[in-house]
Simulated scan of single mutants.
Amino acid sequence: MIEADIIVRRAGFTLTSAFSSDGGITALFGRSGSGKTTVLNAMAGLVRPDSGHIRLDGETLFEASSRIFLPPHRRRVGLVFQDAQLFPHLTARQNLLYGRFFNRTAGPRLDFDAVIGVLGIEKLLGRRPNALSGGEKQRVAIGRALLASPRLLLMDEPLAALDTPRKLEILPLIERVRDEMKVPILYVSHAVEEVARLAARVVVLEAGKVTRIGPPQEVLAPAVGPVSGQRFETVSLLQAKVRHYDEHYGLSTLDHPAGIISVPGRASPPGADVRVVVRGSDVSIAMKRPGSVSIRTMLAATVKTIEADDGPVARVDLTLTGGDTLSAFITRNAVDELGLGQGDDVLAMIKAASIDAR
């Protein structure tokens, strides 16, 4: 259990942050400069807040009124930076074991073999950092933090320095750490797709203030403001269940109450519940089922609202059969030509190639 209610003052900037979390992944989400990293540093003990308190599992890490400030090495908090920051003169194994140095408490210790197994780094142990890729370095950095047996794992934009293939390689590993290691994670990011996929709870920061807190499907819903500015930032979350994987075509089929969702690659074992992240710019709308078309995913929906301004694009919020909400961005011209209106029954079409199974 995390409880944080702090104020941090710096030249020209004041952070006021209050939130709590019961476990899983809590994301601190917002633009650069909003205060996300400052919150993380305060949790780690690298920044001393000016007022307030921080508690972890009932233990007070910081309380201004009582002058309590537990130093970083006594907090049992793991920290993963944007840059892996491995020791260049040590092998991957030696970097990993360095994390053990910080766990001198009587608390439980994570098993070395279990950690490297979850992260898939068995073959990297003898290499030095200069012989590792960016994704491999981050795996080792995550392992080093875990082997300190932390009560809380802090991750500060851990994927920001990686290219897309490496990001897609690391994301499932973070999910495995969450699900198999059962270590609560405070995850800093300004990437909406990362947050939508990983987080159970999202804390939105804007200019040093918490503006929204809640589950991602609510917090990441389209914001108020010019529609044109939302087009590439708006995502929707759909809950589906894996039906099967087609070996020949390399496609996973997911069951959703509104229809079948096709996803390239192997998603999860049949029967597994998965969260599908869909960008609003990847959704098209049809009034009836089209004939010859490459799009495989067509979901039954009803038009909930249509938002438009003076720009060329409109946002259409759809209610899918089953209750999920899906946002689509189409041109205002298309809205008029289709005669689209609130309450219309439509098909939401999503290109399979726009979704990655990982």
Score class of each variant (00 low, 15 high):
E3H: 12
V8H: 04
R9T: 13
R10V: 07
G12Y: 02
G12F: 07
L15F: 10
A18E: 10
F29Q: 04
R31H: 14
S32K: 10
T38C: 09
M43P: 15
G45W: 09
G52E: 08
E59C: 01
F62H: 08
A64N: 05
S65T: 15
S66T: 13
S66V: 01
I68A: 07
I68F: 00
F69G: 00
P71S: 00
P72A: 03
P72S: 05
V77T: 11
D83Q: 13
T91G: 05
R100S: 13
F101W: 11
F101Y: 14
T105A: 12
G107W: 02
L110M: 15
L110E: 12
D111H: 06
G117D: 10
P129C: 06
G135R: 10
E136W: 01
Q138I: 08
V140A: 05
R144E: 11
R144V: 09
L147C: 08
S149K: 11
P150Q: 00
R151Y: 05
L152Q: 05
L152M: 14
L154Y: 04
D156T: 08
P158V: 07
D163N: 14
P165S: 11
K167C: 14
L168C: 07
E175I: 03
E175C: 00
V177Q: 04
V188C: 04
E193I: 11
A196F: 06
A196M: 01
R201W: 11
V203M: 05
V204G: 00
E206T: 07
V210A: 08
R212M: 09
P215I: 06
A223G: 12
G229I: 09
Q230P: 12
R231M: 13
F232T: 14
F232Q: 11
T234M: 02
T234C: 07
S236D: 05
L237P: 07
L238A: 04
Q239H: 15
A240K: 03
V242N: 08
H244S: 15
Y249Q: 11
G250H: 06
L254V: 05
D255Y: 15
V276Q: 08
V278C: 02
G280F: 00
V283C: 10
S284L: 12
P290G: 00
S292A: 14
S292Y: 06
S292E: 14
T297R: 01
A300S: 15
A300K: 15
V303C: 11
T305D: 15
A308Y: 01
V316N: 02
L318M: 05
L320P: 10
G322Y: 05
G322V: 06
I330Y: 13
E337H: 15
L340S: 04
Q342N: 08
G343H: 03
D344H: 10
M349S: 13
I350G: 00
A353F: 02
I355E: 01
D356I: 09
D356M: 07
